[in-house]
């Protein structure tokens, strides 16, 4: 397995953090190797926070001499945009800051749940789901997703069911960037 020194987890809110961190841990990453950066309260929209901070992390990641032992995992909800449109906004932000687009071997994974992370959790708990619908949040009960995330992480090489949200299928295709040795 990839021997990481640290994985920065840039995300919009607590639910995304719990989901992604638990996924990484279920894939064998140690808790102390994961550095979550969640949009702090008061900073405004989570999407804006992630979008603005993303190029700064990419810049620092690229400056590190041995960036194979580090990774950047980014989560941002698609909300009412398409996944591609949300990814495009992140790319635009990189370009605006003068950074080249992601290279295939860079350990920078972008994960965009549509409509948001709760859609994925509701799918894992009780499929199918509708990516246009707003699902209920698990307020102060974010860890409810953990057993389902564990199951997803353990079976991630297997194809997702037909009914899986397209955004989750797209996200799974990002995983080899973070776990290149497991492909």
């Amino acid at each position: 397995m990839t021997d990481y020194t640290s994985i920065v987890l840039l995300c919009e809110d607590r639910q995304q953090e719990v989901f992604a961190r638990h996924f990484l841990m279920s894939r064998g990453i140690e808790k102390h190797q994961i550095y979550p950066d969640i949009n702090p309260k008061g900073k405004g929209a989570g999407e804006q926070y992630v979008r603005e901070k993303y190029p700064r992390y990419v810049k620092s990641y690229r400056k590190k001499a041995n960036n194979l032992s580090n990774a950047l995992v980014v989560l941002t909800d698609a909300d009412n945009l398409t996944v591609q449109a949300r990814l495009q906004r992140l790319d635009d932000e990189l370009q605006k800051s003068g950074e080249p687009p992601r290279a295939p071997k860079e350990r920078i994974g972008l994960f965009v749940p549509k409509r948001n992370i709760e859609t994925w959790i509701h799918f894992l708990k009780n499929p199918p789901v509708n990516e246009e619908k707003v699902y209920q949040k698990f307020h102060r009960d974010e860890s409810v997703c953990k057993p389902y995330v564990t199951a997803l992480a353990q079976n991630y090489r297997q194809p997702l069911p037909e009914t899986a949200p397209a955004s989750l299928k797209t996200a799974c295709r990002e995983l080899p960037r973070i776990f290149p040795d497991e492909v």
Partner: peptide
């Protein structure tokens, strides 16, 4: 915290 795009709580 106010979701107003202002400062984070630690900064406030």
């Amino acid at each position: 915290a106010e979701e107003d795009g202002g400062l984070s709580v630690s900064e406030l």
